[in-house]
Design a protein around this nucleic acid. Structure first.
Lengths: 121, 121
DNA sequence: TATATAGGGGATAAAATTATCCCCGGAGGA
DNA sequence: TCCTCCGGGGATAATTTTATCCCCTATATA
């Protein structure tokens, strides 16, 4: 695991939340898991822009902070499931709000992004 | 401005919100501005872990997405104020929730972070 | 035998974000 | 004259995060 050289401010609530939800795919993973997409391969299919590898890394971090838990079925073929913990459930209202805000403002943001380069020529 | 090589998924609400709030100091800036800390120098004093430079960059991005607006008083010495736009106001519930969640879970997260290295020896 | 599925990770490259350094103009005070 | 404050930014380094590549076990199926 990567060890930060610049420590994060442990007194700041915003920084704490950022530490948990800051990963690029973490909100999507949590959302998907909350919707019953629990197995690694399913999650990868649900988020195909990412990679197995990256998703595994982010899942591991979510697990480290006990926001999700990993159930390993010792079978062959192997089976693994991720589920939200109680702590993880408390994040869902936040995630839903994020998703809503993004949806409501999408077209506006989209325009700004798409027009950035076009304005210059 | 940096131009992304990997485009962000414009269809995803979560990604949209991340695009706006993802910067390291953006939540803190918005929070501070909402509390009446409006001038650049004040903001820097409020967030001394960061730098004028970095704060300026992040403020500019927040401005680009019309989450804050910049009022320039053409005076000497110069005076500048940032204020939330209506769009920016709609982010505040989200930011407050982030802050609360982080506060409530701080001690737990703190322990995990602080014990990471200690466990190994 | 070859390919697909399930699960996984080490090593390294690339991308993206932050930080640092040092400079600018102009006003005011010691 | 020197230092402080207000505002700002270019250039570049450093840090941090993601992505890519390729390999692993084992079962099942064409």
């Amino acid at each position: 695991m990567y060890e930060k050289k610049i420590p994060l401010p442990l007194e700041c609530g915003l920084a704490m939340t950022r530490e948990i939800l800051g990963g690029k795919w973490k909100p999507n993973l949590l959302f998907a898991i909350s919707e019953g997409i629990n197995r690694p391969s399913q999650l990868h299919r649900a988020i195909p822009q990412s990679t197995k590898r990256v998703l595994n890394l982010q899942l591991k971090e979510l697990e480290e902070f006990e926001v999700i838990e990993k159930k390993i079925y010792h079978q062959l073929p192997p089976k693994v499931e991720y589920h939200l913990t109680e702590r993880g459930e408390t994040l869902m209202p936040l995630l839903r709000q994020m998703n809503e805000w993004g949806d409501k403002n999408r077209s506006f943001i989209k325009n700004i992004i798409l027009n950035r380069t076009k304005v210059l020529d």
